[in-house]
């Protein structure tokens, strides 16, 4: 029984969450086929064909799939999925939007946010905002699951090259949504879920102007910017900056939480980070319970000092080189 991995890409390359899903896929020790959906994305198909363990790449290329809508992809993927024992997708908004549709039409459960593959039918996934890890058994004929990308390393390219084929495209036979536009949060910084450093701000920053100090800090560190729900609700940053149970899940090498108290919903999105730093004026803030390094004090003293000293550190690093 082979495995079908539904890939996500940005027209240029596979997303980091897709590469993490591929690593998870390899743990099944079955042939892996990748399916790619889009238009004029031959280049990405070529890339996908070069990863170790990939035996075939399906490319669903159609002008209507440039901004693919879940309903438009469903019928073709359903036909394709019927030949597989396992169907995986990254647990991104792309995968979450699409995969339950396939599971329902295959009449199987979907296992969401898998963080560990125990065996071919037993999986571990977080529940209750990550307060507990459930080990679940699926005896469905097809195992359909989304993979939490922070739990798996990104797959590396190998030396082989898998064949690329096109499945017959079946447009949807029923009324469906159509794409109008996408407003991307423009940022030259690394993408939040795959950045190695994340600087995240909360209500403690008090104003949008203060939050902007985080940009200087992030630029010095080459970091992405995240936020707590409180900061997003207060309008300091756009919605897609939110880290937490219902926002993005991140696990960078370094997570710096600034003025974030650490509600369980926020911790759910960042507690797998390798090193956590918390800056907060309240010594009792729950964020300190997960922080490796905590600094208690007035943010508006600490933050400018941190920025200044990092600048000096950078300068010193440069002169040493």
């Amino acid at each position: 029984m082979a495995l079908l991995l539904i890939a996500e890409h940005d027209q240029e390359k596979l997303t980091p969450s897709t590469l993490a899903t591929l690593t998870a896929a390899k743990q099944f020790s079955v042939p892996i086929h990748i399916v790619l959906i889009g238009h004029s994305c031959q280049k990405v198909a070529e890339e996908a064909s070069r990863y170790e363990g990939v035996e075939k790449v399906w490319i669903m290329d159609h002008p209507s799939l440039l901004h693919p809508i879940a309903e438009e992809m469903t019928d073709t993927l359903l036909e394709l999925a019927k030949g597989y024992g396992f169907v995986l997708a990254p647990s991104s908004t792309f995968g979450k939007n699409l995969l339950p549709r396939l599971a329902a039409l295959l009449d199987v459960a979907q296992i969401s946010d898998v963080i560990q593959i125990v065996d071919r039918q037993t999986f571990v996934r977080p529940i209750y905002a990550g307060n507990a890890l459930a080990t679940v058994l699926s005896q469905d004929d097809t195992k359909v699951m989304t993979i939490r990308s922070t739990a798996f390393d990104k797959a590396e390219k190998g030396s082989s090259k898998a064949p690329i084929e096109a499945p017959p495209f079946k447009p949807p036979s029923f009324p469906h949504a159509t794409f109008v536009k996408i407003e991307k949060s423009s940022s030259k910084r690394p993408e939040l879920t795959s950045a190695s450093i994340v600087v995240s701000g909360g209500r403690g920053l008090q104003t949008k102007e203060n939050f902007e100090m985080l940009e200087t800090l992030a630029d010095l560190l080459g970091a992405a910017i995240g936020a707590s729900r409180a900061a997003v609700d207060a309008g300091f940053v756009p919605n897609d900056y939110q880290v937490g149970q219902t926002g993005k899940v991140v696990a960078p090498d370094l997570y710096i939480a600034i003025g974030i108290s650490g509600a369980i919903q926020h911790l759910a999105g960042m507690q797998e980070s390798k090193v956590i730093v918390a800056l907060n004026k309240d010594p009792e803030a729950p964020i300190f319970q997960v922080a490796d390094y905590g600094l208690v004090g007035d943010l508006f003293t600490i933050l400018p000092e941190l920025i200044e000293k990092l600048k000096m550190m950078k300068k010193a690093d440069l002169t040493q080189k």
């Binding site: 529940i127 507990a132 459930a134 080990t135 005896q139 507690q271 956590i276 490796d292 390094y293």
Partner: peptide, 28 residues
């Protein structure tokens, strides 16, 4: 009838205890 069966539920592995530092210099 549920398709997924929960075999067990466990606590996530605890993080090792952290420490509070006194200054920005110590943190860096």
């Amino acid at each position: 009838t549920p398709h997924l069966q929960t075999l067990k539920v466990a606590e996530p592995p605890p993080r090792k205890p952290g420490l509070k530092v006194e200054s920005v210099d110590a943190l860096l």
